[in-house]
Design a protein around this nucleic acid. Structure first.
Lengths: 189, 189
DNA sequence: GCCCCTATTGGACAATTGCGCAATAGGCCG
DNA sequence: CGGCCTATTGCGCAATTGTCCAATAGGGGC
């Protein structure tokens, strides 16, 4: 799906990738749309769960926010890191035309926003961050990352990984009244 | 292309939309990819030109920036305003798989960034804005808008037009050291 | 060994697609 | 009117696709 696009994924491709026949695919899935929606849901939820798991290991809200960016950045630096976001890009583009996919995509995006907004609210309560509208701030931080990553996925090296990571942390610091560099973790130096 | 997706657009669809035959399409375009790349380029450049034309009517940099947001917002409120951004979303998703489309899409995105960065530089020179890195700021402002609009195109009414417009102006004000509301134009106010 | 249910195969089928092609129409120049 | 170039048609072809289906294999309970 990441290589050929959601619309360009054929039943036979899935079958040969799994080393089986196309008939078996239809034994488990009534239609191709059903398979696509479930495959995307599985992959996207795994990503979200991995970020949530990493966040929960951290202590105070600021650490959690740092881990949020760390995990996101690590996802980009993988061997096929861009492939993960390519699927998201395909899903967003196809969402308006595939109801099943739209439902999954929307629910997951809302969950990402809730996770981040919860961190911000906790940060405000702990006096670590200042933020008048955590929900709006969460949407802005996530949408900025999405928009920047989008350019990289679509246009290759137009923006570097370091620029995307640095710029999104910088914007989040400004958004939350943190001192510059407050979100620069030890890992990313 | 906006309705069915770039990959889902068929020669016969274009032909019937134009009231002619499929053979005629191939009389003018050697391949479908060529037609798609040119159609996208034409539409996207028209959008950019309309924004640039509107900007050039304004006087000082702050007015230009305001017009930038006005034109962007007006594009969203059109009857089929989301269709325009749907094409961009499709193009971004397909860019990594279609070299001709990627080249066009990348060049146009770079031009959008240059247009905005030029406004910011002029604003700094005129003492109206403060901004340490106009290129980075331009990418951030544009990417935030893209990321927010993306949610609306993909997921319908998840974010309202007013939220997207207000949030992106607010973020730009913060990014450029403007007083809150400085970018709220008379038209939208 | 027999039965039954599921897993799995490989191919058939109808629909759809991009593209090519032979044929026609239409206008312009002489 | 005749010749020529382009615009335009409508069909045909080969390739591809999702889906279905008859047939086989396999394994556990009796």
């Amino acid at each position: 799906m990441a290589r050929q696009g959601i619309a360009g994924t054929r039943v036979r491709d899935v079958a040969s990738e799994l080393g089986t026949s196309s008939g078996l695919i239809h034994h488990y899935y009534d239609s191709m749309d059903e398979l696509i929606a479930e495959a995307f849901a599985e992959e996207a939820r795994a990503d979200l769960n991995s970020v949530v798991a990493s966040i929960n290991e951290a202590g105070d809200p600021l650490d959690r926010l740092m881990r949020f960016f760390d995990t996101y950045d690590r996802g980009m630096s993988d061997a096929d890191g861009d492939l993960g976001m390519q699927i998201w890009l395909d899903a967003w583009a196809e969402a308006s035309r595939r109801p099943a996919l739209r439902k999954t995509s929307r629910a997951l995006n809302e969950e990402w926003q809730r996770v981040l907004a919860a961190i911000l609210r906790a940060g405000v309560a702990a006096g670590q961050m200042s933020c008048v509208d955590p929900d709006a701030s969460a949407w802005r931080i996530l949408s900025l990352i999405d928009g920047l990553v989008l350019q990289r996925v679509a246009h290759g090296d137009l923006l570097s990984r370091e620029q995307i990571d640095g710029w999104s942390r910088l914007a989040a610091e400004a958004e939350l009244g943190l001192r510059p560099g407050a979100l620069t973790s030890d890992l990313t130096g």
